[in-house]
Measured scan of single mutants.
Amino acid sequence: ELIWEQYTVTLQKDSKRGFGIAVSGGRDNPHFENGETSIVISDVLPGGPADGLLQENDRVVMVNGTPMEDVLHSFAVQQLRKSGKVAAIVVKRPRK
């Protein structure tokens, strides 16, 4: 059984690379294997702001206090874009 651990990460936006993450998932883009609608970190740019803080497959729980459960992919992207220079991101990942 999976035990999820929650992490809060504060990312500083890089002028060229943004937050250095890509997200997939969302209500309109469920996971191809299990139908899960979570917003998921799909890519972490090496050397970017999120490197060492976020991991691929982290589930995004909140962005700047806005819940990311059962939202559209575009909504999640929009929340990240409009967060200015700093984003507080809450993620969960299975305990190893």
Score class of each variant (00 low, 15 high):
46 P>E: 14
14 D>E: 06
38 S>I: 02
27 R>A: 14
3 I>G: 04
5 E>L: 06
30 P>I: 04
52 G>P: 04
30 P>E: 05
4 W>Y: 13
1 E>F: 14
41 I>S: 01
84 G>Q: 11
16 K>P: 04
18 G>T: 10
85 K>G: 13
36 E>I: 04
46 P>N: 13
44 V>N: 03
1 E>D: 14
9 V>Y: 09
23 V>L: 14
24 S>I: 04
13 K>H: 11
16 K>E: 13
12 Q>R: 15
96 K>E: 05
40 V>N: 02
7 Y>A: 15
40 V>P: 02
60 V>K: 00
79 Q>A: 14
60 V>Y: 01
15 S>H: 07
39 I>K: 02
31 H>L: 11
9 V>P: 01
33 E>I: 09
61 V>D: 04
33 E>S: 12
34 N>D: 13
84 G>P: 12
1 E>M: 11
92 K>M: 07
56 E>L: 12
12 Q>G: 05
31 H>S: 07
42 S>F: 04
32 F>A: 12
68 M>W: 10
23 V>G: 00
13 K>V: 05
19 F>W: 07
54 L>F: 03
56 E>K: 12
42 S>Q: 11
32 F>W: 05
94 P>Y: 13
29 N>L: 08
9 V>T: 10
62 M>C: 10
44 V>H: 00
54 L>R: 00
15 S>R: 10
12 Q>D: 12
22 A>L: 14
88 A>K: 14
8 T>R: 08
15 S>L: 10
3 I>Y: 13
73 H>N: 14
18 G>V: 04
27 R>V: 10
94 P>W: 07
82 K>A: 08
50 A>I: 02
30 P>M: 15
93 R>V: 03
13 K>E: 09
44 V>A: 01
50 A>Y: 00
16 K>S: 09
96 K>N: 13
56 E>A: 10
95 R>Y: 13
43 D>I: 07
67 P>Q: 15
24 S>L: 13
31 H>N: 04
47 G>H: 11
74 S>M: 13
39 I>D: 03
95 R>N: 11
82 K>W: 07
46 P>R: 14
78 Q>S: 09
14 D>N: 04
30 P>N: 04
18 G>I: 06
40 V>C: 05
47 G>Y: 05
54 L>N: 00
86 V>I: 10
20 G>H: 00
38 S>N: 09
12 Q>M: 10
56 E>F: 09
8 T>E: 07
23 V>I: 11
1 E>L: 13
39 I>S: 01
78 Q>L: 09
43 D>Y: 13
55 Q>V: 06
50 A>G: 08
25 G>K: 01
64 N>R: 02
38 S>V: 04
86 V>W: 09
52 G>E: 05
3 I>E: 09
86 V>K: 15
24 S>Q: 15
12 Q>Y: 10
74 S>P: 05
33 E>D: 13
21 I>R: 00
21 I>A: 02
89 I>P: 01
8 T>D: 15
40 V>F: 07
64 N>Y: 02
2 L>V: 06
39 I>Y: 00
8 T>K: 09
35 G>D: 10
44 V>M: 04
41 I>N: 03
26 G>S: 03
40 V>A: 07
26 G>R: 00
18 G>N: 12
77 V>P: 03
15 S>Y: 12
65 G>W: 06
33 E>T: 15
81 R>Y: 15
26 G>M: 03
26 G>K: 01
35 G>T: 07
90 V>A: 09
82 K>C: 09
8 T>H: 09
88 A>C: 14
85 K>H: 09
42 S>A: 07
53 L>Q: 07
45 L>E: 04
20 G>I: 04
28 D>C: 04
4 W>G: 05
23 V>P: 01
47 G>K: 08
4 W>F: 13
67 P>C: 12
39 I>M: 03
23 V>R: 01
64 N>W: 00
54 L>S: 02
95 R>T: 08
41 I>R: 01
75 F>T: 11
55 Q>E: 15
74 S>W: 10
49 P>L: 04
70 D>H: 08
54 L>M: 12
90 V>Y: 04
80 L>I: 14
90 V>W: 05
63 V>W: 15
77 V>E: 15
50 A>M: 00
58 D>V: 01
59 R>M: 05
23 V>C: 08
32 F>L: 11
20 G>N: 02
40 V>Y: 12
2 L>C: 08
31 H>F: 06
60 V>N: 01
44 V>C: 05
2 L>P: 05
71 V>C: 09
60 V>L: 10
25 G>M: 02
36 E>L: 08
7 Y>F: 15
89 I>Y: 02
23 V>F: 15
89 I>V: 12
91 V>H: 00
41 I>A: 01
5 E>R: 07
24 S>K: 12
51 D>N: 09
95 R>L: 10
35 G>L: 05
55 Q>C: 06
41 I>C: 04
85 K>Q: 13
27 R>Q: 13
71 V>F: 00
78 Q>V: 04
18 G>Y: 05
96 K>Y: 11
90 V>K: 10
96 K>I: 11
10 T>G: 09
10 T>A: 10
56 E>W: 05
24 S>R: 14
57 N>C: 05
64 N>M: 00
75 F>Y: 14
69 E>M: 15
52 G>Y: 03
11 L>A: 01
44 V>L: 05
15 S>P: 14
35 G>A: 11
56 E>C: 11
14 D>G: 15
33 E>Y: 06
2 L>T: 09
18 G>R: 06
18 G>A: 08
36 E>N: 14
83 S>I: 13
75 F>N: 06
42 S>W: 05
83 S>Y: 06
57 N>D: 13
8 T>L: 07
61 V>P: 00
88 A>E: 15
10 T>I: 05
90 V>P: 00
68 M>N: 01
25 G>W: 01
87 A>P: 02
66 T>W: 05
80 L>E: 00
23 V>D: 00
27 R>D: 04
90 V>N: 06
